[in-house]
Design a protein around this nucleic acid. Structure first.
Length: 279
DNA sequence: CATATGTCCTGAGAGC
DNA sequence: TGCTCTCAGGACATAT
C-alpha cells in the first residue's frame, strides 16, 4: 500500500472531499470539512508507515495518518461510482499548466472500522511512539522478539498480534509464520525454546517479505487489492490460512485445523506443529 | 502490569 | 425469495 501511494509523491492536492454516504462515518480528525480544507494545496513529500498505519507527509510538518484496519484500502483512480469512499484527494503536478494530468487518491472502507487523521509530526511521534507500537516485524531480531514475549503466558499467536510487542503482524501472517516455524499457535510464549524463537523470527520475516513481494493476500471476499487495483498473489501461497480440512502442503499428511485464539480464527497443521515446548 | 471480553461497522455466504 | 446466522487482513475500552 505504501509503495503504491509513494508513486504520488511530488503531487499537490487540488481538491479534497469526504463524500456524503448513507453509512456510519468513520473516525475523522479533525472533522471532515476542516480536514479537507487543511489538505487542499498541500504537496505530498513522502509516504511512510508505522506498523499497519500509512503516513502521508506534507509540508509544514503535517501528516495524514490512514489506518485501514480490516477493510480499508487505497485506490488510485478508482472506477466511477465506487461505493464506501471515505476520502478523495485529487492530485496534480505542481505546474502552472491547467492541463497537467490529474490523479485521484481514494480511501475506501466498507466496514468503516478504519480512520483518517491529520496530525502534526510532533503529535504523530507521541501517538505512535515505541511505548505503543513495538519494533517492526521486518526488522526485529530473534533476541528482541524473545525478550519482549518470553515472559508472557499467552499463546504465541496472540503475542504476535500484539502491536505493542511487535508491529505489523496480522491474523493471516501470524498463522502462516507459525506454520513455517513449525510452532503450535497455542503454545504459551514462556514455553518456546531458544531454537523456536530463532526459527520464528526468521520465518516471520520470510513470510512477510514473500507476501509483500506477491503484493499481499486477496481473500475470497476480494476486499483487498493494491492501490493500482491489482489483486494480491500471496493467497495462493498460504499453507494454512483458510485451508482447514485440506491436507498440509508441507508434510502432506496433516489435515489443517481451525481453532479460535483471542477471538480470531487460527489455522495450523497438527502434524507439523505439535503442541509441545521446544526443549 | 498482563490477560479476557465486548464493541465498533457493513456485507457476503451458508443454511433453512 | 427471504430470513437468520456466522464470519471477516483490527484495535481499543473496559473489567478483572
Amino acid at each position: 500500500m505504501r509503495r503504491g501511494v509513494a508513486r504520488l509523491v511530488g503531487l499537490r492536492v487540488v481538491r479534497a472531499e469526504v463524500p456524503p454516504l448513507n453509512l456510519q462515518p468513520i473516525k475523522y480528525q479533525p472533522e471532515p470539512a476542516e480536514l479537507c480544507r487543511r489538505l487542499v494545496g498541500r504537496h505530498l513529500q513522502r509516504v511512510s508507515r508505522i506498523g499497519k498505519r500509512l503516513l502521508l507527509h506534507w509540508e509544514a510538518g503535517e501528516v495524514l495518518v490512514i489506518e485501514p484496519r480490516m477493510t480499508g484500502r487505497i485506490i488510485i483512480d478508482p472506477p466511477e461510482g465506487l461505493s464506501h469512499v471515505r476520502l478523495v484527494l485529487d492530485m496534480k503536478s505542481p505546474t502552472e499548466r491547467e492541463e497537467a494530468p490529474q490523479q485521484s487518491l481514494v480511501f475506501r472502507d466498507v466496514r468503516g472500522l478504519g480512520s483518517v487523521r491529520l496530525l502534526s509530526e510532533e503529535l504523530c511521534r507521541r501517538e505512535f511512539g515505541p511505548h505503543k507500537i513495538g519494533p517492526d516485524a521486518l526488522d526485529i531480531s530473534w533476541e528482541e522478539l524473545r525478550d519482549r514475549l518470553s515472559r508472557r503466558r499467552c499463546a504465541i499467536k496472540v503475542g504476535l498480534l500484539d502491536q505493542s510487542v511487535l508491529a505489523g503482524v496480522g491474523n493471516i501472517y501470524a498463522s502462516e509464520a507459525l506454520h513455517r516455524a513449525r510452532i503450535h499457535p497455542a503454545l504459551p510464549c514462556e514455553r518456546l525454546s531458544r531454537v523456536q524463537w530463532e526459527r520464528l523470527a526468521k520465518c516471520l520475516r520470510e513470510v512477510l517479505e514473500e507476501a509483500i513481494r506477491f503484493q499481499g493476500s486477496t481473500l475470497s471476499d476480494g476486499a483487498y487489492a493494491t492501490p493500482e487495483n491489482d489483486q494480491g498473489g500471496y493467497q495462493d501461497k498460504h499453507c494454512v490460512y483458510q485451508r482447514d480440512g485440506q491436507r498440509c502442503p508441507h508434510c502432506r499428511r496433516g489435515i489443517i485445523r481451525r481453532i479460535i485464539l483471542a477471538q480470531r480464527s487460527t489455522y495450523f497443521c497438527p502434524v507439523c506443529q505439535p503442541l509441545r515446548s521446544g526443549r
